[in-house]
Write a protein that binds this DNA or RNA. Structure first.
Length: 423
RNA sequence: GUGACCGUAGCUCAGUUGGUCAGAGCACCGGGCUGUGGCCCCGGGGAUCGUGGGUUCAAAUCCCACCGGUCACCCCA
């Protein structure tokens, strides 16, 4: 039989409710922070990602779902959301609508990696971006927002790590110094770090090899290279985070896999997740919009991995409770119940109606399994008496309600069943 | 892309040195209770034992390949 593509997973009933819950939770926070939703395509021209994420990154070099369209144009399933949002911002001139634009989107991303815990080929992100602000206050606010969404989802054991990567004024000097350091200790480095020395020296810093980490204790630190503006900015961010009571650690080795990040960068980790422990990450990318052909406006954002969020989230019981199970015994009863059910559903009650003509016993069993609050039983006996039975499924007590007038019946039913669930 | 472990009903798993080994529990459907659920008892449907080769008189069981899963490397959300 045909199975789902490797690394692409179905989100089944029981699981989907959790997704819906977390997405709504995130939307609630975005609203509170005055973000607007944007929905962008999952397919973009390959060039967009090559130019934004960076040609030399792993994502672009070997992880993208890239193919030729029928007209021979190279297209790519988005591996992240920032590039597409920048594109839309520029293409529609959204930056002209206000000095500061705050956007969010939720949806699937695609990267061709070997699947493992917390890592799929189609995965989902809750993504936020702010354009037009250089202020350190914006950095702090974005970090706080990510943290609050995660903690509101009951995520436990989270750690916030922050760092500043410097800017185009100061980072090159650090890069050179680091590269020189790596060259000197080249013989002792692991294979990967030897490779990184040339290609992406910053990445060597978060190598997991113990020997390498030991060596890097003596490596130059970015903080010794920050220009005064970057130093000032980073201190200011921390000042605000403290005022918000956010507990964080400074990780001088924290770097990012995407080229466009500058200055503030952060990761929220949940160590209990194992190898893929970053639940959310983000940072500032001031030169990106310009590099993509837009005006020179700054940006900062983050992404939360929904699958990883779900692994650490503590959710309330989300199993749906049926308000009413309508049980018709015979065609005449069925016909009578149709408009009743229709009406109750229009009022927002969750109502199940049997179309299969199964036995009363079987249907009560079913109602019990679906955790119905009540069952509405109608058979020939009741029809002849002009009544219907409302059975409370918890107590087993039954009430006789007059069938006519229907308006009265509906009113009684709504009284008995209470207000519909909001969800 | 590399490595380790794994792959038997929808789910969780038994299956002894290859020889009634195609099983159990849960779930599902029905009956006991001809119109009253949750407990109990009984019965039923449902599996080309991941796929394809090979060894053998005989393979779920041994060998090879492929596919898939899990975890780790790598990378990252």
């Amino acid at each position: 039989m045909v199975k789902a593509v490797r690394g692409f997973k179905d989100i089944l009933p029981g699981e989907a409710e959790k997704w819906c819950y977390l997405e709504r939770l995130a939307c609630k926070y975005f609203r509170a922070y005055s973000f607007q939703e944007i929905r962008i395509p999952i397919l973009e021209k390959t060039e967009l990602f090559a130019r934004s994420i960076g040609q030399a990154t792993d994502i672009v070099e070997k992880e993208m779902y890239t193919f030729l369209d029928r007209n021979k144009e190279s297209l790519t399933l988005r591996p992240e959301a920032t590039a597409g949002i920048c594109r839309a911002l520029i293409e529609h001139g959204l930056y002209a609508k206000a000095k500061v634009i705050k956007l969010y989107t939720i949806g699937p991303m695609f990267r061709h990696e070997r699947p493992q815990k917390g890592r799929l080929r189609q995965f989902h992100q809750i993504d936020a971006e702010v354009f037009g602000s250089h202020s350190a206050g914006t950095d702090a606010e974005i970090i706080l927002l990510a943290w609050e969404i995660l903690t509101a989802g009951g995520a436990k054991g989270l750690r916030m790590e922050i760092n500043s990567l410097g800017c185009p004024q100061c980072r090159p000097r650090f890069r050179d110094a680091l590269q020189e350091f790596l060259e000197q200790s080249k013989a002792k480095l692991c294979e990967d770090c030897q490779r990184r020395t040339q290609k992406n020296p910053l990445r060597a810093l978060d190598c997991k090899n113990e020997n390498c980490q030991k060596l890097y204790e003596k490596a130059p630190l970015i903080e010794d290279f920050w220009c005064s503006a970057c130093r000032e900015h980073f201190l200011e961010v921390q000042q605000y985070l403290k005022q918000w009571n956010l507990v964080y650690e400074i990780n001088p080795r924290l770097v990012r896999g995407l080229d466009y990040y500058v200055r503030t960068t952060f990761e929220i980790k949940a160590p209990q997740l194992g190898a893929q422990d970053t639940v959310a990450a983000g940072g500032r990318y001031d030169g990106l919009v310009k590099a993509l052909g837009g005006p020179d406006i700054p940006g900062i954002g983050f992404a939360i991995g929904i699958e990883r969020f779900l692994l650490v989230a503590q959710l309330p019981d989300l199993t749906p409770r049926l308000d009413l199970y309508a049980i018709p015994l015979g065609k005449r009863a069925y016909m009578t119940l149709l408009p009743v059910v229709q009406n109750l559903r229009q009022e927002g009650l969750m109502v199940e109606l049997d179309h299969e003509g199964r036995s009363l016993k079987a249907l009560l069993k079913q109602a019990n399994k679906l955790k119905a609050k009540a069952a509405l039983i109608l058979g020939d006996n009741e029809l002849d008496q002009g009544i219907v039975l409302l059975r409370n499924m918890e107590t087993g007590r039954q009430k006789e309600l007059p069938l006519e007038p229907q308006k009265e019946l509906l009113k009684r039913l709504q009284q008995e069943l209470g207000a519909p669930c909001d969800s």
